[in-house]
Deep mutational scan, measured.
Amino acid sequence: ELSWTAEAEKMLGKVPFFVRKKVRKNTDNYAREIGEPVVTADVFRKAKEHLG
């Protein structure tokens, strides 16, 4: 699991709890794919757009 900024964690907190774990995993995987060592708010937004 990658490191997350406080802002990205806050955004994740707005995701319904029953899918939060999956969203975190998918976002981590997306960040790795694009070469990001940390999940930022920008990476979170891009993952959301990319993953739907």
Rank of each mutant, 00 (worst) to 15 (best):
G35P: 02
W4P: 00
T27R: 02
K48N: 15
L12P: 00
F18G: 12
A8I: 00
P16Q: 05
G13D: 14
A6W: 09
K22M: 14
V43E: 01
M11Y: 05
F44S: 01
A41E: 07
D42T: 08
W4S: 01
E7S: 06
L2W: 04
T27C: 07
E49A: 12
S3H: 14
V39A: 01
E7A: 09
E1H: 11
L12T: 00
D28H: 04
A31M: 02
K10D: 14
K25L: 15
V19K: 13
F44I: 03
T27I: 15
I34Q: 11
V38Y: 07
L12H: 01
K22D: 11
L2E: 03
D28V: 08
D28F: 03
K14R: 11
A41V: 10
V38P: 00
V19F: 09
F17V: 11
E33V: 10
Y30R: 02
T27H: 02
D42N: 07
T27W: 03
D28R: 03
T40A: 02
K22N: 13
K14P: 03
F17H: 10
L51G: 11
A6E: 14
S3Y: 12
K22R: 13
V38Q: 08
S3M: 14
E7Q: 07
G13R: 14
V19Y: 14
W4L: 01
G35L: 05
K22Y: 13
L51F: 15
A31H: 00
D42L: 08
E7W: 04
F44P: 01
A31L: 02
D28M: 09
V39T: 02
A47N: 03
W4Y: 02
R20W: 04
A47D: 01
V19M: 15
W4A: 00
T5V: 03
R20G: 02
A41N: 04
K10Q: 13
K22T: 12
G35F: 05
H50K: 12
V38I: 13
F17N: 08
E9A: 08
V23D: 02
E9L: 15
V15Q: 05
L12D: 01
K46H: 07
A41K: 07
N29L: 12
E33A: 13
I34H: 15
G35H: 06
T27Q: 01
Y30S: 01
E9C: 09
K21I: 10
N29S: 12
R20N: 02
V15Y: 15
M11C: 06
